[in-house]
Structure formats: structure tokens, C-alpha cells
Design a protein around this nucleic acid. Structure first.
Lengths: 217, 217
DNA sequence: AATAAAATTTAGTCTAATCTAAAAATATGT
DNA sequence: ACATATTTTTAGATTAGACTAAATTTTATT
């Protein structure tokens, strides 16, 4: 049985591997975890003994197959709970992360799978990130930033790039809701702002805003 | 911020105070927590320093007002999550306790209150135990055992005394479901077995079974 | 009231997860 | 290529929560 701390390390290693695909360094992990490098070395040794990562002194580390599965299971739980909090309990986006950080450590496969079913097997979380299924497979989501779309493109607004409170609250205030149907009406050459149709309203969004919204077509 | 361990101690002290109303002893608590008495003494000191209990060496301890509120908040979370697991995720009664033991430690008042609202402010959990409200007040539940009822009594089956898996599975098998409307039809003088009407079915239950079912009239 | 029994506390050890400071290994710049 | 900088690891300390064994206090029994 893994501790919370071990699980948090695994999760963070997983995320770092997405960027540094040829292995993660002690320093990179310590920065991400906001701990000292020596603490990371200690934990890395423990994870290595438990066969969760492959590690050679001074040479960085990578998740093992087993470690990968474990990390994905935690991410699955995190994202499912986020959906639950937003869709069932009416949390706003900017409040869910902290609570999901706790809920992701609840140990019950049965709970996870029943929650998944209760939520009707969602494929993406409120930030637009894909939710791995029971077998650990991530659904393919073809998403692009609003700012990269062509006039005429349409689809569903499924997530954000910037998930800061201030941005999410800005979206709320402007009635830009998750899962809204969106169509790109016009693009201004001058400032790259977009005219979009969203939920049968036509509004203008700045280039900066458009660069932080994902459309699934 | 309290640790899981501190929270578990508080909860257990609360339960013991229901029985030993003039204070709890180190030994009683160590038995209930399945730890050694010396470990309890250590923890008691810490809880005392944090003003969660009132403690005099060799003289036992009691929850302070603050400790009481904290314990009740944990019990509230435990019971709300049990309702969620049974009513929303279709867990069976005998599976919920272990998971609720984990969920009760999630720290977010907002989550607790939103969960409460989502569940429509339930007053009792799947074992028939009362759920304290946001202010820590327990609802008054007038429950009695089926075995103590008179012929003609009617009400709702709200909980069990024996919550062992084997008993809960037995109830499932015999279509005795929580919140069923019940009427006592007849009582056999010979073996004290009852004929009851439950969900428009008439069935017989043994005295032993009837001694473990609570009716709310 | 004296002594035996039981309960409680203290003292010291262990493990997990962190830290600081120092040592060792690796990487970099001229 | 070699001196320096950076990264990583080791060594030793700390805190929380548990433990064992011993000491102390309280309770019970004659």
C-alpha cells in the first residue's frame, strides 16, 4: 500500500515525463514537488525499491510499467472527482483542484469505478484533460485553442489552458461555460480578436482569452 | 490542521463518551483504537496541548467544546459519505464503512455542505444513525427495534443494530431494503417471530432478525 | 493500613518524510 | 583537458506516531 507522499511523487513524475520524455532528473522533480533535492533522492530510492521506477544513481529515473499504471490510476481518480465536484456539486472550476488533490488518494477501486459509472464515463475533466478509463487508456481528444481555429470552425468548448482562478472567474462572468457549443464567426486581422457564437449568443473574445480556450471539433 | 490519526482519536473518544459519560480512560481508548496504552498517552498529551480534550494525568479525559465540535464534524462527514455511497453509487451497506473511514478525513467544509445539499439533507445514515447538521446538532430520531414493537405499529425501516456483512447480505437476499414502509401484522407468542408487511409484501422474520432492525414511527 | 494488582506514564527505540550541510559525481567553458 | 559550476547523493538531525520495557500512580484486597 502506497503512502500519500509516494503517490504524489508518482503523479508528478508522470507529468514531468510528458515533457522530459527521456527521463526525469532529481532537480526537476524537487522543483515541481517544492521539496529539497535530498528529499527527492530519499524518496526515489524508496520508489525504486518498490519497483515503481527505474533508477540509476546520478542518471535520473523513469516510471516502470507498474509505476505508470499506478500514476494513471491516481490521475484517473483526480479527474473523475473533479467532474463530480463541478457537475454534481456545482463547484466552480477554480475550487476543485485542492479538494481533488485529497480525494485522489482514496483507496477503493470499486469506488472509482462506481463513480465513473455514476458520472456516465466522462472522457474529459473540467479543465479539458482526458480521463483514463479503467484499463488506464487515455481517450483521444482532438482539441485546439480557439486562437488556432479558422473562421467557420465549430465544436464544443471543453477546457482551458490557463486554469487560474482569475481566468476561470472571468469566464464565468462572461457566460463562457464548459461544454457550450461554439462557432468561430470572424477573426480581426488587427488584434486577432475573435467574434464567436456561444450558446446562441454572439460575443467578442480577445486573442489572449482565445489562446486559453480549447475547442473540441 | 489535524492529522488523520488525531481525527481518529477524537472520533473514538466521542463514541466512548456516549457510554462512559464521566470521562474516558487510557485503557478503554487503547482497546478501542487497537493500540498500546503508551501510544494513547502520547496522543492524549498532544490533543490536550491543542485544547481538544481536558486531561489530568492518571485521571482520564473528556473532549473540550472545541474537541466535541471537531469530532462531530468528522462523524457528519462519515455518515454523509455513507449515504452518498449507498444512495448514489449503489454500494451495499456492508461495503461502505471502510471507504467512509477514508472519506471522513477530506478537509473542505464547502464539500461537506454541498454534499449534504446534494443528498437533500439526510437525517440518518444507512445504518440508521443520525447525521448532525452543519451546526453540529443531531436530529432527534425516535427509533425502536422491530422486536420491541406492538402489533399494528407502522413506520419506516431506517437502520440496523448488527451491521455485519453477513446480516446485511441476508437482508438484501430477503428484499428487506432501507427506507421501506413497514407494518407489524402479527407476533407469535411461541418464538416471538413477527409477520410484517414490507413494501406491500408480507413476510416472516425471526426474533433474532427483528432484534436487529430499527423502525422509525 | 499494608501490600498486591491494575492502570497509567515515562524513557528510549523505530520508521517515514522531511531538512541542512557536506561530499561526490557529472557537466561546462575556455 | 582541466578548473569551475552544477547536480546529485550521503550523513546526520528533526518530527509524528507507533512500539517495548520499566517506573510510577491509583485501586483493590486482605
Amino acid at each position: 500500500m502506497l503512502t500519500f507522499s509516494e503517490e504524489n511523487y508518482l503523479k508528478t513524475i508522470f507529468h514531468l515525463e510528458q515533457i522530459h520524455s527521456n527521463g526525469v532528473s532529481t532537480n526537476a522533480l524537487s522543483k515541481e514537488m517544492e521539496t529539497k533535492a535530498s528529499s527527492v533522492t530519499d524518496m526515489i530510492k524508496k520508489l525504486s525499491e518498490k519497483k515503481l521506477i527505474n533508477y540509476k544513481k546520478y542518471k535520473g529515473f523513469k516510471l516502470s510499467q507498474f509505476g505508470m499504471e499506478t500514476a494513471i490510476a491516481i490521475i484517473r481518480k483526480h479527474r473523475l472527482w473533479e467532474v463530480f465536484l463541478v457537475e454534481k456539486l456545482n463547484f466552480s472550476w477554480d475550487e476543485v483542484h485542492e479538494v481533488a488533490e485529497q480525494l485522489e488518494h482514496i483507496k477503493s477501486e470499486k469506488l472509482t469505478n462506481k463513480l465513473d459509472a455514476f458520472l456516465a464515463y466522462p472522457k474529459i475533466d473540467p479543465h479539458g484533460d482526458p480521463i483514463p478509463n479503467k484499463d488506464g487508456n487515455f481517450p483521444k481528444i482532438s482539441k485546439m485553442l480557439f486562437s488556432e481555429c479558422q473562421v467557420g470552425d465549430e465544436g464544443t468548448f471543453i477546457g482551458v489552458k490557463d486554469s487560474s482562478s482569475i481566468f476561470l472567474q472571468f469566464l464565468d462572468k462572461n457566460n463562457i461555460y464548459l461544454n457550450a457549443k461554439v462557432k468561430i464567426i470572424q477573426k480581426e486581422a488587427f488584434d486577432l480578436s475573435l467574434k464567436i457564437e456561444i450558446n446562441n449568443n454572439t460575443i467578442m473574445v480577445s486573442h489572449k482569452t482565445a489562446s486559453n480556450l480549447y475547442l473540441q471539433s
